[in-house]
């Protein structure tokens, strides 16, 4: 693996995934779609951690450990985020990000 594919290739994949996720998170109107974009970004960060671990420091477990922590954080984020989306849906009857403007003066 490390011989056949340069580290940069993996990193470019991760960067592309991050940018797609960023675009999704910034531009989707549906709140669930925004959350999906955030999940894509977290995934790309994970790819980076695992790739750096595999190519540079395969003797230490720091990379996979942090990947696991990120997965933990992603799980927590998804749970709370979706709970908030459900709560928003209940009080506004919509899940569109730009319709939820209760604080507008």
């Amino acid at each position: 693996m490390t011989r056949a594919i340069p580290l940069e290739a993996v990193l470019v994949v991760a960067a592309a995934l991050f940018c797609i996720g960023l675009f999704g998170a910034l531009s989707r109107r549906n709140l669930v779609g925004v959350l999906m974009g955030v999940e894509l970004m977290l995934n790309s960060a994970n790819i980076n951690l695992v790739a750096f671990w595999r190519y540079l420091e395969p003797r230490f477990i720091t990379g996979p450990t942090f990947a696991i922590f990120i997965i933990t954080v992603a799980a927590a984020e998804a749970a709370v985020g979706l709970a908030m989306i459900i709560a928003i849906y209940r009080s506004w009857n919509t899940v569109n990000a730009d319709s939820v403007d209760g604080l507008r003066g």
């Binding site: 531009s27 109107r29 549906n30 669930v32 998804a78 009857n93 919509t94």
Partner: peptide, 26 residues
């Protein structure tokens, strides 16, 4: 877990599925 949660959330908030609306923000 996470994608199942997302699917559940979509189905619980599916009332307005946004078929005819704009997909992206302005």
């Amino acid at each position: 877990a996470i994608s199942i949660l997302i699917l559940f959330a979509i189905m619980l908030t599916r009332h307005i599925s946004g078929e005819g609306e704009r997909l992206l923000t302005r």
